[in-house]
């Protein structure tokens, strides 16, 4: 490695080559997406062995709640995009506000999900009921925990943004957190049609 490449600040590099956020978060995101991908593939494999059973129990899921949740997460992602843009304009107040709104979208998602779970668990459905519900609960709960982790990250970002930690010079940490939040959103956009809708 030459000294010139070392001296080059990431912000000065051609924009097309710059990876927003930290390489470490991207390794983590790729690992997480791989875990979900294998999980989705397992779902498809299990479903192919008993399509009728999967289709039958799929109808018991609350699609409206799922669709509403999709809307919430997409909106949340949009707020976070706006927050990063605001931070790049050095508008920390606006950035913090938008992170807060993104957080609220996540909270809304969790609330809807808790009601959905309450109905299912109330009906005596568990991981051991059948393979479809095993996947339904495993996938959505695994994702549910990711939403919680995403919200913890957003909360930290909110505090740090209010302290003015991110700006046009360095929005590195904010971008990393935002990338993670988008992953949570993206995973749901695959999960929702796969488990709730697709027949």
């Amino acid at each position: 490695m030459t000294d010139t490449s070392l001296a080059l600040d990431p912000a000065e590099m051609p924009s097309a080559r710059r990876l927003p956020g930290d390489l470490a978060i991207w390794v983590f995101i790729l690992a997480e997406m791989l875990a979900f991908a294998v999980f989705f593939a397992s779902y498809a494999f299990a479903r192919s062995k008993d399509v009728e059973m999967f289709n039958f129990y799929q109808q018991t899921l609350d699609r409206n709640a799922g669709a509403f949740n999709t809307l919430l997460l997409v909106t949340g992602s949009w707020f976070v995009v706006l927050a990063v843009q605001a931070a790049h304009r050095d508008d920390s107040r606006a950035a913090a506000r938008r992170i807060g709104l993104g957080f609220l979208c996540g909270a809304g998602f969790l609330t809807v999900k808790v009601f959905e779970y309450a109905a299912k668990f109330g009906a005596g459905i568990s991981l051991s009921t059948n393979t479809f519900y095993m996947f339904y609960i495993s996938l959505t709960f695994f994702h549910f925990m990711h939403v919680i982790l995403g919200m913890v990250i957003l909360a930290i970002l909110w505090v740090k943004t209010r302290q003015g930690a991110y700006g046009s010079r360095d929005a590195h940490g904010l971008e990393s957190g935002a990338a993670y939040w988008h992953m949570v959103d993206l995973l749901w956009i695959v999960l929702f049609p796969l488990v709730y809708v697709m027949r």
């Binding site: 490695m1 490449s5 070392l6 600040d9 990431p10 912000a11 990876l19 930290d22 390489l23 470490a24 978060i25 983590f28 925990m145 982790l149 913890v152 990250i153 360095d170 590195h172 940490g173 990393s176």
Partner: peptide, 21 residues
């Protein structure tokens, strides 16, 4: 290399990921 891959970020992910899983 500076900034694009930081140790503090890697450390935070380590702690966060471990607690999560």
């Amino acid at each position: 290399m500076s900034g694009a891959f930081t140790k503090s970020m890697a450390r935070n992910i380590f702690y966060g990921g471990t607690v999560f899983f």
